[in-house]
């Protein structure tokens, strides 16, 4: 795996960001049934189809109007997710990508460090929008460890993917305190959070794009 870890002075160009988003779309598409299964246990059984629809729109938009910079790619993707998903994950993931994209500005290339900082800004915006904190059994429980790992390891994507996956698994024993699952109270314990699971897929796609 170490060969896929970018060095501090690596640069990430627009094609890298396109590979990431397309890889995320593919992964969400393949895992849609699993996401919906998880959501049927503690939610309203639409997370897989919602994410599938949103990321299909992202892939289509990237092809139709190819963005000229990493930041523009993320802003375009975020915009699609906000308008196409139809569930809470749309505004949340849309905000994550848009805010990260805005943080990158219109630079043609960015460093892994800049990406880590931009994602951190995006995750902070998600926390603000949804009002969740770590341990609430939400996507933040996968995203926060991921951006921590990314920031700490000078942009180690496999480490971020691993941290996100561990974070998603760690939501199983948690009791939901945000969103529809919170109505279930203790009955939400014992199920993996669908949002944390899709977050882990999206972060894993970063590592995939770096290979």
């Amino acid at each position: 795996m170490s060969s896929s870890e970018p060095a501090v002075d690596d640069v990430l160009d627009t094609p890298f960001f396109l590979r990431w988003l397309i890889a995320a779309a593919g992964s969400v598409d393949r895992e849609a049934a699993r996401l919906t299964d998880l959501d049927s246990a503690i939610g309203d059984a639409d997370h897989g189809t919602n994410m599938q629809r949103g990321f299909a729109a992202v892939a289509e938009a990237l092809e139709k109007e190819p963005p000229g910079s990493p930041g523009a790619a993320l802003v375009l993707a975020g915009r699609q997710l906000i308008s196409k998903v139809g569930g809470a994950s749309g505004p949340l993931y849309g905000t994550l990508l848009r805010r990260a994209g805005k943080a990158l500005g219109d630079a043609e290339q960015v460093t892994p460090r800049q990406l880590a900082d931009a994602l951190r800004a995006g995750v902070d915006a998600v926390a603000q929008l949804g009002g969740a904190t770590p341990g609430d059994k939400t996507m933040l429980d996968a995203l926060l460890p991921a951006v921590e790992a990314l920031g700490a390891g000078a942009g180690s994507f496999p480490a971020a993917a691993e941290a996100a996956e561990k974070g998603a698994l760690a939501t199983v024993p948690m009791q939901a305190r945000k969103g529809r699952a919170s109505y279930l109270g203790e009955r939400s314990v014992g199920h993996q959070d669908p949002g944390a699971t899709s977050s882990a897929l999206i972060i894993a796609a970063l590592a995939e794009a770096a290979r």
């Binding site: 906000i82 139809g86 994950s89 949340l92 848009r98 915006a125 929008l129 529809r180």
Partner: peptide
Amino acid sequence: LGSAVLAVKALLAE
């Protein structure tokens, strides 16, 4: 509730 509120907030943030 829920995503309806988040959707409006996200649009406002745009």
